[in-house]
Structure formats: structure tokens, C-alpha cells
Deep mutational scan, measured.
Amino acid sequence: GETKIIYHLDGQETPYLVKLPLPAERVTLADFKGVLQRPSYKFFFKSMDDDFGVVKEEISDDNAKLPCFNGRVVSWLVSA
């Protein structure tokens, strides 16, 4: 499998796309960081919350699996 991750960088209009050679349910924050090489950023991901619906959730645990929608991951990188 392959996972497409779209990421928005510090408010830039056009998002970036990276592809990881892993199925979406196995991709972790560490996998994503390894491709990006951007150490001083906070990582937020499109996520579903039972109370609020669609939210941007910050993930900082490198072992955390990334939230996935239709085989895609959507993220926002914010300068720390």
C-alpha cells in the first residue's frame, strides 16, 4: 500500500504532497517526520472528534498512528 499525506506549511496557500510506501493504517508520526526533515515544527492532523466533528489535532508522539480519511492524511505544520 501507499499513503498520500498532504501538508500545509505555515499558512502557505498551496499544500504539499508526499507519498509513503506504507498502508495508511500503519503510518506513524516518525515515518512522516523522516520524509520531511523539518525538526522545529508542530504537527497537526485532520481528525474526527466525537463531540466536535472534524478538528485539527496536535500529535507529538512519534509512535502515534496518523488519522486517515479515505486513505489520505491531511496535516498542518506550524513553526514551533
Rank of each mutant, 00 (worst) to 15 (best):
I5E: 02
R72D: 09
R26A: 13
D50P: 12
F52T: 14
R72C: 15
F32H: 07
K33I: 00
Q12F: 09
N63Y: 08
K19V: 15
Q37F: 07
D62Y: 05
V74D: 05
S79F: 06
L9D: 06
R72G: 07
D51V: 11
P39T: 13
S60F: 10
G34M: 13
V27C: 11
Y16Q: 14
A64T: 07
F52L: 15
D61M: 08
C68P: 02
F43C: 08
D51S: 13
L77P: 00
T28G: 05
Q37E: 13
N63E: 13
P21R: 05
S40Q: 13
G11Q: 08
Q12I: 13
L77Q: 00
L36A: 02
D51T: 14
F45A: 06
F44M: 01
K19S: 14
A80Q: 12
V18F: 03
W76L: 01
F44G: 02
L9C: 06
S79L: 03
Y41H: 09
Y7W: 01
F52N: 15
G11T: 07
V27F: 10
R26D: 12
F43I: 05
D51C: 10
D31R: 03
V35Y: 10
Q37Y: 11
T28L: 02
F32K: 00
L22R: 04
S75H: 05
K65Q: 14
I59R: 02
I5A: 01
Y41E: 06
D61N: 08
A80L: 09
F45S: 01
V73F: 03
S47T: 15
V74R: 07
M48W: 13
F52Y: 12
F32W: 05
I6E: 14
T14Q: 14
S79Q: 09
F43E: 02
T3N: 01
V78F: 10
Q12K: 11
V55Q: 14
A30G: 12
P15C: 08
F32E: 04
F52C: 15
V27I: 12
Y41R: 02
K33F: 04
G34R: 14
F44Y: 12
K33V: 02
T28F: 08
L20F: 08
I5D: 00
V73C: 08
E13F: 06
V55H: 15
P21W: 03
K33G: 03
M48I: 11
G34F: 06
E25R: 05
P21F: 05
R72Y: 15
I59T: 01
F43M: 09
D10Y: 00
P21S: 09
E57R: 15
V27W: 00
R72H: 14
L22Q: 07
P21T: 05
A24I: 07
T14V: 11
I5L: 03
G1N: 07
V73R: 05
D10P: 12
Q12T: 11
G53A: 13
